[in-house]
Amino acid sequence: MNKGITRVAAGLLCGSLLLASGCAQVAPWQRGHLGSDVMSWDSNALKRSLDDHIHSSKEASSGGFGAAGGGCGCNG
């Protein structure tokens, strides 16, 4: 499992960096849209923390989307 994780992690890192260097450059001042609030990766912190908490306590999966699981007595 650990070897598998290392490989997947290395693959993801290399792949994404290749992808990044292959992307057309978007100048910082052309990124106005990307900085808009409607584009945020996460919804507001309180909403996100409760939604994650509920989903991970009702489902067998946890983690993903930039966060680790754990921290409550609701064994899934």
């Binding site: 994780i5 992690a9 993801l12 890192l13 994404s16 960096l17 992808l19 990044a20 992307c23 057309a24 978007v26 052309q30 990124r31 106005g32 849209h33 990307l34 990766w41 983690g63 930039g66 966060a67 680790a68 699981g69 754990g70």
Partner: peptide, 13 residues
């Protein structure tokens, strides 16, 4: 738990 990620700008939108 170990986490790794990357955000990429694909184009201006």
């Amino acid at each position: 738990s170990l986490f790794q990620g990357v955000s990429l700008v694909l184009n201006k939108d």
